[in-house]
Design a protein around this nucleic acid. Structure first.
Length: 436
RNA sequence: GCCGUCUUAGCUCAGUUGGUGGAGCACUCGGCUGUUAACCGAGCGGUCACCGGUUCGAGUCCGGUAGACGGCGCCA
């Protein structure tokens, strides 16, 4: 690596550069001026640092430049590092040379901000400390997912994003013109994954997923990232353990690499560590209904899916993620098999996050019963001819297998404690917003 | 799709009983050699979302349209 003359701000804040003359470059975060002295706070990717520009220490023209560089101007600065209690962070740069690279126009985002305005100015708002911190954590999460699966013997396997099937209910698919035909943006990788396990056995993937739902909540996106796995020779209970291990692995990576970001977001690191050391409970749907009945006096009829309010009330009793298994077979997709010991329920699971962040993982064992799948597809009004290729997978060397999908933004939102899932992705796409 | 709240300066918001549209922030100018999203003084800044109605007179009252936000429903 070539030696750069540029110092990163974190090295200064670590006290490694005190007394030395150094070069930094970055963007103006705040400025204050007082007659013949200008205080500018400069940010780079590693942190923020106060620089002090005094008249007489550099040319009058450059002093005026320092006065005239508005917030978000880009600058190169030379100076001597001093330890000073009056400076935020305890260190400051006493400037001897100041070069404005770009004099920014008045920055539209100031002290008071509405969510709508921040979404309109998203391309500028992603520079904020808050979003920068979340994006760094998101990067750790995505990297951890790849690391987790690769170190555990999984192959990365890519499925098409343009898919012909109108599976899982056509109303929530985005239609795409495909020459003279129609295709749909992927809602799941799963059916293709089930084809690939016959050679690769253990596979994973992470990529964008599209759902044209009309949801207007703080937990839904029209385009979101899902991390999925599928494995031959595994059953429901095997993949539940994989999911728990994966979430803990991700948490551990974030705690290790993102202490500064978690602090900026006011997240309690000790609380996250406690979650890491806990065993995530596994309960059945039926047991979840019993908890709701006993502790919340909520009567949910057996067979109804848990709604948001019920998931949240259930999770009020837990500070760690909880796995809920054995949902009623009627409300589950065709590929989720009946439990042979209780035919009213399916061999499936959801992992619910605490603090109202909802379902972060959903998965199941996969049905091997061709006739049952056909029957259930017909009942839900699907054209079973579309699935003929998928049924082949049960005809040629079928094996027990299972898999799940993890919602990357839901997990990032929970770890970061954001009040809206939109802040867990750089440029959110929802039913009402597709720009910038 | 349903219910509720909202739309006034670049941003965040006040605006009383219907009677000449305001503040803070941002920006510009002036002052200040240690500020912490500084302070003091001045200035710049308006199709009151849009269309129509009532009225001598509408930001304000009535009807409609559009958009935003929140909740419900939906949610492989």
């Amino acid at each position: 690596m070539s030696k750069s003359k540029w110092t990163k701000i974190e090295e200064i804040l670590d006290g490694k550069k005190t007394g030395k003359t150094i070069h930094i470059h970055g963007w103006i975060y705040r400025t204050r001026s007082s007659g013949n002295i200008v205080f500018a706070v400069i940010r780079d990717v590693t942190g923020i640092l106060q620089v002090t520009i005094k008249k007489g220490n550099l040319s009058d023209k450059k002093f005026d430049d320092a006065k005239n560089t508005l917030v978000e101007s880009s600058v190169e600065v030379v100076g001597i590092v001093k330890e000073d209690k009056r400076a935020p962070g305890g260190y400051e740069l006493q400037v001897t040379d100041y070069n404005a690279i770009n004099f920014a126009e008045p920055f539209p985002i100031v002290k008071d901000q509405s969510p709508e305005f921040l979404l309109d100015k998203r391309h500028l708002w992603i520079r904020s400390q808050k979003l920068t911190s979340i994006l760094k954590i998101r990067s750790t999460v995505v990297g951890a997912i790849h690391k987790f699966f690769r170190t555990n013997g999984y192959y990365e396997f890519d499925a098409p994003v343009l898919q012909p099937n109108q599976c899982e209910g056509g109303s929530t698919l985005f239609e795409v013109k495909y020459y003279d035909n129609k295709t749909y943006l992927s809602q799941t990788w799963q059916l293709y994954a089930e084809a690939a396990i016959f050679s690769l056995e253990k596979i994973y993937n992470m990529g964008p997923t599209f759902r044209a739902e009309k949801s207007k909540t703080s937990r839904h996106l029209s385009e979101f990232w899902m991390a999925e796995m599928e494995a031959a020779w595994m059953d429901l209970y095997d993949v539940i353990e994989v999911a728990k291990d994966e979430v803990k692995y991700i948490l551990k990576e974030v705690i290790t690499h993102n202490k500064q970001e978690l602090n900026i977001l006011n997240k309690n690191i000790n609380k996250l560590k406690k979650i890491l050391e806990s065993d995530f409970p596994t309960i059945t749907y039926t047991e979840a209904l019993e908890i709701l009945k006993e502790k919340e006096n909520m009567d949910v009829k057996w067979g109804k899916d848990l709604r948001t309010i019920e998931e949240n009330k259930l999770m009020d009793h837990f500070e760690i993620p909880v796995v809920v298994t054995h949902y009623p077979i009627e409300i589950m997709a065709f590929y989720k098999p009946r439990d042979p010991d209780d035919s009213k329920t399916a061999l499936c699971f959801d992992m619910l996050a605490p603090e109202d962040y909802g379902e972060i993982v959903g998965g199941s064992q996969r049905s091997l019963d061709l006739e049952d799948m056909k029957k259930r597809l017909k009942e839900s009004g699907e054209n079973i001819e579309n699935y003929d290729w998928y049924f082949d997978l049960r005809r040629y060397g079928s094996v027990p297998h299972a898999g799940y999908g993890l919602g990357v933004e839901r997990l990032v939102a929970w770890i970061c404690g954001t009040d809206n899932i939109k802040d867990a992705i750089p440029f959110p796409r929802t039913i009402l917003r597709y720009k910038p």
